[in-house]
């Protein structure tokens, strides 16, 4: 089973037909929580697997950064999806999504403290013990920071990767969003990260609203994000990059053009 390779796209039921017709596609991602493990995988995914397209389950609700131990049933589900689609690896976020019995409904940032590093590493170790394949960790886009950060983002992430042995899933649009909202230099963060640990990249669209850049996944990928992708790949080109689109799907021609622009910026063959 080969890992992520070249340009991929997030498989969603709404664009399954579009994805099925991409001739050069080598890998997709599927939201792990959306895949039932009682029956066979969704038809579109089975057909992609039969074509040799790698399927990477992407978890969004494990809450690896939650102060409580990660729920074993959620890890078991992610492991079962990995088996179901013969995944080369799985991915999740450095974030928490619930606390005190309340669901946040989205990925929330952690304080960049040594206590939080310990919490994440313990949960990642619990997950890794049950997963049949390697785990890649994705830093998130955050609209706010905690008031008591002890570490900068590069040191925080590097420490977690070093201690867990996990791979890095770097979302270049998240790097852009955080730097823009914090007024920092995105390239400086790239310089501080272990780029050789990247299993694959994410890229997605976003939009400015109310004075903040929002990583919406429902808008086009801005040129500045494509430029940052090119900048990263000129330093170290990871094996793959995946476009995430989660709603307000554009006409097929526009989505194909966006995939081509990603391929061009990263220096990969087009898949359309």
């Amino acid at each position: 089973m080969t890992g992520p390779d070249g340009v991929g796209i997030g498989w969603r039921p709404e664009i399954a037909g579009f994805v099925a017709e991409l001739p050069g596609l080598r890998f997709v991602e599927v939201i792990a929580e959306a895949v039932p493990v009682a029956g066979p995988p969704p038809d579109g995914l089975t057909e992609l697997r039969e074509r040799g397209v790698a399927v990477v389950p992407h978890g969004v609700r494990l809450s690896l950064g939650g102060a409580e131990p990660v729920e074993p049933a959620r890890v078991a589900h992610l492991a079962a999806v990995a088996d179901l689609v013969a995944a080369p690896l799985v991915s999740e976020h450095i974030a928490f999504v619930r606390a005190g019995g309340l669901e946040a409904g989205h990925l929330l940032p952690l304080p960049r403290t040594r206590e939080a590093v310990d919490v994440v590493c313990a949960n990642v170790a619990r997950a890794q013990a049950e997963l049949p394949v390697p785990l890649a960790l994705e830093p998130i886009a955050a609209l706010f920071d905690w008031p008591d950060d002890e570490l900068d983002e590069a040191a925080f992430l590097t420490e977690i990767l070093d201690r867990t042995g996990a791979l890095l899933l770097l979302d270049i649009a998240n790097v852009y969003a955080n730097a823009r909202n914090r007024g920092t230099d995105p390239v400086a963060l790239l310089d501080g990260l272990p780029l050789e640990r990247i299993a694959y990249l994410h890229i997605a669209g976003g939009a400015e609203q109310g004075g903040f850049y929002h990583d919406t996944h429902t808008d086009p990928v801005p040129a500045a994000v494509l430029d940052l992708l090119a900048e990263l790949c000129s330093r170290h080109r990871p094996p793959a990059v995946l476009l995430e689109r989660d709603g307000h799907y554009p006409p097929a021609a526009d989505l194909r053009a966006e995939l081509d622009a990603v391929a061009h910026a990263a220096g990969f063959p087009v898949v359309t």
Partner: peptide, 25 residues
């Protein structure tokens, strides 16, 4: 973490120290 989530989704007061505008966004 529980206080932060309660502030974001349950109308609780924001925890001390957080910048208000980013939290509101």
């Amino acid at each position: 973490q529980a206080r932060l989530v309660a502030a974001l989704v349950a109308g609780a007061a924001p925890p001390p120290g957080f910048a208000p505008a980013p939290l509101a966004a």
